[in-house]
């Protein structure tokens, strides 16, 4: 796009005054946003970074989390994440392929899925928690478990995951599809040997964005994977995710603030890693960056 900006040309009198006021207001908004960010980041890093020792990451939590580390919490978090991705990726990839590659033949199904995912993306996370409790924990009899929590999260990340996987597939130029068709390749062979390999960077970006959403989530896990701090022995055990640990330490455990800072910084660093990874992949392969939200 031709990036063209209105000039701050020479004007006089009231117009000039209005121009200056508007510019001042816009700068003021930017300064407020930056200060808020700086305040939050500085406070969390100042109190949290000093807690980051190997022991904090690899020791079991003690005294309701006031002392000790995050070992069982991190294991539970990763287990919930793995279950979430294992459930969401196959369905998400299938749906994304249908939306991107069969948009002509399956127009009505595509429109229905898209509309439904748009609404799903706006559903509050606490509602996913209620649904997960009713469906996975009670109806399917999973109880409070890592499995129920991971599957609830899978439902929640599906819209974001499908949208970004679809975006990844659309990055592949149409010429390649036409060339494959001209060679008489079947749709399955085209997908397997051309489209999926070519779209891989974009697909990885989508996957990483979904991971970020899942890691950040708390409310949907409150009554699906539960609060139990022990090291989980199987996916049917309850386990406490990092985000829930931060909540519990700061709200329910007097004297837990110190370790809550540490846990918050660990969570933020995990999210930052995940996002930088997506950014690096997108940059390396010059993908269109996924839009806001």
């Amino acid at each position: 796009m031709d990036d063209w900006l209105p000039a701050s040309g020479r004007t006089r009198g009231r117009t000039a005054a209005a121009d200056r006021t508007a510019a001042g207001a816009a700068w003021m908004c930017a300064v407020i946003v930056t200060l808020a960010f700086g305040w939050i980041a500085a406070d969390l890093l100042w109190h949290g970074l000093s807690r980051l020792t190997p022991g904090f990451l690899f020791e079991m939590p003690q005294l309701s989390g006031r002392a000790g580390g995050l070992a069982s919490i991190i294991v539970s978090t990763l287990a919930i994440l793995a279950i979430c991705l294992a459930a969401a990726v196959p369905i998400g990839l299938g749906a994304a392929i249908l939306l991107a590659e069969y948009s002509r033949s399956d127009r009505r199904l595509g429109r229905f899925v898209r509309r439904s995912l748009d609404v799903l993306a706006g559903v509050p996370s606490i509602v996913f928690g209620l649904f997960g409790n009713a469906f996975f924990c009670v109806y399917l009899g999973m109880g409070f478990s890592l499995l129920a929590g991971g599957l609830t999260l899978a439902c929640m990340v599906l819209p974001l995951l499908i949208r970004s996987l679809e975006q990844g597939l659309r990055e592949v130029p149409d010429d390649w599809r036409n060339a494959a068709a001209a060679l008489g390749m079947s749709k399955a062979a085209t997908l397997r040997s051309i489209l999926l390999p070519a779209a891989l960077p974009g697909l990885v970006v989508g996957l990483v964005l979904g991971m970020g959403r899942a890691l950040a989530e708390t409310a949907a896990l409150l009554f699906t994977s539960g609060y139990v701090m022990r090291m989980p022995g199987s996916v049917m055990d309850s386990g406490r995710a990092l985000s829930i640990h931060i909540f519990d330490l700061s709200m329910n455990v007097p004297g837990g603030t110190g370790n809550a800072y540490g846990a918050a910084v660990v969570l933020l660093l995990m999210l930052l890693t995940v996002n930088l990874l997506a950014l690096a992949i997108a940059r390396r392969w010059q993908l269109t960056q996924p839009g806001p939200l």
Partner: peptide, 16 residues
């Protein structure tokens, strides 16, 4: 298979 996964994703909202 693709239609089934897309259908599942679309029906999820109704199930919820």
């Amino acid at each position: 298979a693709l239609r089934i996964s897309a259908g599942l994703a679309g029906v999820l909202l109704l199930i919820i």
